[in-house]
Simulated assay, not measured.
Amino acid sequence: MDLLKQTISKIGELDKEAMAKAKERVDNLIKPPGSLGRLEEIVIQLAGITGELYPKVDKKVVIVMAADHGVFEEGVVVFPQEVTEIQTRNMARGVTGVCALAKQARADVVPVDIGVKVDIDEIGIISRKVKYGTDNMAKGPAMSREEAIKSLEVGIQVAEEQIKKGKNILATGEMGICNTTPSAAIVSVIGGYDPFEVTGIGANFPVERLEHKAGVVKRAIEINNPNPKDGIDVLAKVGGLEIGGMAGVMLAGAANRVPVVIDGFISLAAALIACTIEPKTKNFLIPSHASKEKGAVYAAEFLGLKPMLYMDMRLGEGTGAVLALNLIEAATYMNNEMITFAEAGIPV
């Protein structure tokens, strides 16, 4: 708990002076003001995060949190639970979707076993297991409050280890069969939405069985009665260990003034947890893509985050976040490589 408290206490505001200077420079680059749209917004936000007029995001990493879920036993997914272990191992081998896209983006992939139901002895996987999967949230709390805090602190620790290695931008990813179910519960509780509004098909769950899945989410919320104003309580009662880990990464990024790129639905659920714990965290988050998963649009709207990519993606793993790394770095190239009207000798 001490690490979590210390991290929260370090989260401040964006550097308004740096943002004003960055906006002045961007507005005076040799182009019509505003003509590069979101790229301009991104570099101004990066200046506010880092306090630098010429921020860099060339040392990239996607941290992939992996964990299992007890609610699997409620029949809310079509894939076997063993897929979590298999795909976590494949992360270390560099052969998953996020690994392929990360190679193109020149980003490291750091898989973390924070709660897979079996032990994984694989080179390249960081073992920080809080427990062997969550308990079934449809019958009681997914985890204890202490375990929820521990999952947050694992995320903080892993993120800070990467920052100490020189990483200047973080992306969040996850692996956990049926984790759209706790994510829907989190969005429903914190956002105040009906579970039937925000529960989607996840990994190709049959549409005709969606009512059952949403019913499980509804029952979990009713049984556990999480406090929507207490992010730790929501995480403990209807969340997931990998969701807590990603929320911890976000808190650590904000505390260390390092931008964090969030992925799709599961990452947005983690962002809801992080921003409920400390609302200023939101300023340090950069949304990536509009996940096709049903509840993502509700979560993004509630957070006030506007995705930059519309690719009809819903894989997770951090794939959308890694794609967005390219555009975020492009924004810094715009800022660093373009000249101003004055430098071009053009009076304005």
Score class of each variant (00 low, 15 high):
residue 6 Q to Y: 07
residue 8 I to E: 04
residue 13 E to C: 08
residue 22 A to S: 15
residue 24 E to G: 12
residue 27 D to P: 07
residue 31 K to V: 11
residue 31 K to T: 14
residue 32 P to M: 06
residue 34 G to D: 09
residue 34 G to C: 10
residue 36 L to H: 13
residue 38 R to A: 04
residue 40 E to W: 04
residue 42 I to R: 03
residue 42 I to H: 02
residue 47 A to W: 06
residue 49 I to L: 09
residue 59 K to V: 07
residue 62 V to S: 11
residue 64 V to Q: 06
residue 68 D to K: 01
residue 70 G to D: 01
residue 73 E to P: 00
residue 83 V to K: 04
residue 83 V to I: 14
residue 85 E to T: 13
residue 89 R to Y: 05
residue 90 N to Q: 13
residue 91 M to A: 08
residue 91 M to D: 08
residue 93 R to M: 13
residue 99 C to H: 04
residue 99 C to W: 00
residue 101 L to E: 02
residue 102 A to H: 02
residue 105 A to K: 11
residue 107 A to M: 10
residue 108 D to Y: 11
residue 109 V to E: 05
residue 112 V to H: 02
residue 114 I to D: 00
residue 115 G to D: 01
residue 117 K to A: 15
residue 122 E to T: 10
residue 122 E to W: 13
residue 122 E to S: 12
residue 126 I to C: 10
residue 126 I to K: 14
residue 126 I to S: 12
residue 133 G to R: 00
residue 133 G to W: 00
residue 133 G to I: 00
residue 134 T to D: 05
residue 135 D to Y: 12
residue 137 M to C: 01
residue 139 K to G: 03
residue 140 G to L: 09
residue 141 P to T: 11
residue 144 S to I: 03
residue 147 E to C: 03
residue 149 I to E: 11
residue 150 K to R: 15
residue 151 S to C: 02
residue 152 L to T: 10
residue 154 V to E: 01
residue 158 V to W: 03
residue 159 A to Y: 06
residue 161 E to H: 05
residue 171 A to Y: 02
residue 172 T to H: 14
residue 173 G to Y: 06
residue 178 C to G: 00
residue 180 T to D: 04
residue 180 T to F: 03
residue 185 A to L: 14
residue 190 I to N: 05
residue 191 G to H: 12
residue 203 A to N: 03
residue 203 A to S: 07
residue 211 E to C: 02
residue 212 H to F: 07
residue 218 K to R: 13
residue 219 R to M: 13
residue 219 R to S: 12
residue 220 A to N: 12
residue 224 N to H: 08
residue 225 N to V: 13
residue 228 P to V: 09
residue 231 G to C: 11
residue 232 I to T: 14
residue 232 I to A: 06
residue 237 K to C: 09
residue 238 V to C: 07
residue 238 V to P: 02
residue 239 G to N: 05
residue 241 L to P: 01
residue 244 G to R: 03
residue 244 G to K: 01
residue 252 A to M: 03
residue 254 A to K: 08
residue 256 N to M: 06
residue 262 I to H: 03
residue 265 F to L: 15
residue 265 F to Y: 15
residue 273 I to D: 07
residue 273 I to M: 10
residue 278 E to Y: 11
residue 279 P to H: 09
residue 279 P to V: 10
residue 280 K to Y: 08
residue 281 T to S: 06
residue 286 I to Q: 02
residue 288 S to H: 00
residue 292 K to D: 11
residue 299 A to C: 12
residue 300 A to E: 04
residue 301 E to Q: 15
residue 304 G to L: 05
residue 306 K to Y: 12
residue 307 P to E: 09
residue 319 T to W: 03
residue 323 L to E: 12
residue 324 A to W: 00
residue 324 A to T: 01
residue 328 I to V: 11
residue 329 E to K: 05
residue 331 A to G: 04
residue 331 A to H: 08
residue 335 N to I: 10
residue 336 N to G: 06
residue 340 T to I: 09
residue 343 E to P: 02
residue 347 P to F: 14
residue 347 P to L: 10
residue 347 P to K: 15
